[in-house]
Amino acid sequence: MAASDRTARPKAAFVYMVRCTGGQLYTGWTNDPAARLRAHRSGRGARYTRAHGAEGFAYLERCADRCAALRREAALKKLPKAQKELLCTAWQAAGRPFAEHGAGSAG
């Protein structure tokens, strides 16, 4: 029973945009930003980033759980590129919140 108590709380999830080498943005979600960025950079990520390369996170947002991250991902994908770029700029200006999770560090 103790194991189920530990898994009862929803695991935090993240929605992100990765900047590709040509300047494009790829949007996705993950429970582990650092591992997901490593996968994109190594060619084990999405087909799009395998073809276009991945430089790093342009935007990273913490969500309450997987369902919230999926909803947010869908909303971000519907935005025009100019609005996505504004989000990325604001994220940079805010000091890249949650970026430590995606910078390749253990923490």
Rank of each mutant, 00 (worst) to 15 (best):
A82D: 08
R47P: 06
C88G: 02
F57Q: 04
A99S: 07
A69F: 04
P33V: 01
W29M: 11
R19Y: 10
Q24G: 13
G22D: 15
E61T: 03
A46Y: 07
A58I: 08
T89S: 10
A54G: 05
A34V: 04
K84E: 06
A69I: 00
A34C: 13
N31F: 15
Y48M: 10
E73R: 05
P97K: 10
T49H: 03
G28T: 01
T21Y: 05
T89E: 06
R9A: 14
R62F: 06
R38F: 05
A64S: 13
T89P: 02
A68E: 02
M1S: 15
L37W: 06
D5F: 10
R72G: 06
G102C: 02
A74L: 05
Q92R: 15
A68D: 06
G104K: 04
P97T: 08
W29L: 08
G28Q: 07
G45F: 07
W29C: 09
K11D: 12
A64G: 11
S42Q: 03
G23D: 08
A74V: 06
R96W: 15
F98K: 15
T30L: 02
G104E: 04
A64C: 07
R38H: 13
A82I: 07
W91S: 08
R44N: 11
S42P: 00
R50Y: 03
D5N: 12
F98M: 14
Y26S: 13
K77E: 00
R9E: 12
H52K: 09
E61M: 05
E55Y: 06
Y26D: 06
V15T: 09
G107W: 11
C88W: 03
F14N: 05
Y48L: 07
G22E: 13
A8S: 15
R96E: 12
F98C: 13
K77F: 01
A93L: 12
T30W: 00
P10I: 06
S105Q: 08
E61S: 05
A69D: 00
V18M: 04
Y48I: 00
K78F: 07
Q92G: 10
G43D: 03
L87M: 10
G95H: 10
A74T: 04
A106Y: 08
R38I: 05
P33H: 07
T21L: 12
K84N: 06
C88H: 03
C20V: 02
A58D: 09
A106E: 15
Y26N: 14
A93E: 10
F98E: 15
R38C: 05
A12D: 10
T89R: 14
Q92Y: 13
P80A: 12
G102I: 03
A74K: 13
A39D: 13
G28K: 01
V15F: 00
R44M: 04
V18N: 04
R72L: 08
H101L: 15
R41M: 09
R36Q: 01
R38L: 09
A90E: 15
Q92T: 13
A106M: 12
R36C: 00
G23F: 08
K84I: 09
H52N: 13
A99C: 02
A68M: 02
T30F: 01
T49F: 05
L87D: 08
G104Q: 00
G43R: 01
G107D: 14
T27A: 11
H52C: 08
M1T: 11
A103G: 14
L60Y: 06
T49N: 02
E100V: 11
L87E: 09
H52P: 02
R47Q: 12
